[in-house]
């Protein structure tokens, strides 16, 4: 794994605050949890429960729109995806299947759920961070890096 240049922690905190503010806005105004895997499933018709489809679609459209706006305004990303196609497909399948089975991902469990100290979300977050560590360690072992 090639080393990555450090990011100013102020950008990390500032970006985090924006994410938390987005979740706060959705909760206080619409009463909803900003759980992206659930919102994606709803917007694509894969799930029948959750926020109305129009709201789900608007949120999903907002993600890249906000990324472009803030990207041109504050910092443009240097994105390096080095994974092969089979790896991308495997990872995508696992992420899609796992987030539906476990009812959430990094946003719904990791941010929103942990914020309200939901026992389910605390356990889920610890679980996915654990296998996240394990997957990276395993890739290291396999590639001999």
């Amino acid at each position: 794994m090639s080393p990555i240049s450090p990011l100013d922690p102020l950008f990390a905190l500032g970006g985090g605050l924006l994410i938390g503010f987005a979740a706060a806005l959705l909760l206080i105004f619409s009463g909803r949890i900003a759980g992206i895997s659930g919102i994606v499933a709803r917007a694509t018709g894969i799930s029948n429960s959750g926020m109305p489809v129009g709201q789900a679609l608007a949120f999903i459209v907002g993600l890249p729109v906000g990324a472009v706006v803030f990207g041109s305004w504050m910092r443009s990303p240097e994105i390096a995806v080095t994974s092969s196609v089979p790896l991308l497909i495997t990872a995508g399948l696992l992420v899609g299947f796992g987030t539906r089975m476990g009812n959430g991902c990094t946003s719904g469990h990791g941010v929103c759920g942990v914020s309200r100290l939901s026992p389910r979300s605390l356990v889920a977050t610890a679980s996915f961070i654990f296998t996240g560590f394990a997957a990276v360690a395993a890739s290291r072992f396999v590639t001999g890096a």
């Binding site: 990872a91 696992l94 996240g132």
Partner: peptide, 11 residues
Amino acid sequence: GALIFGAGWGL
């Protein structure tokens, strides 16, 4: 589900 998600995330 969370364990499966994490494995894909880490890949």
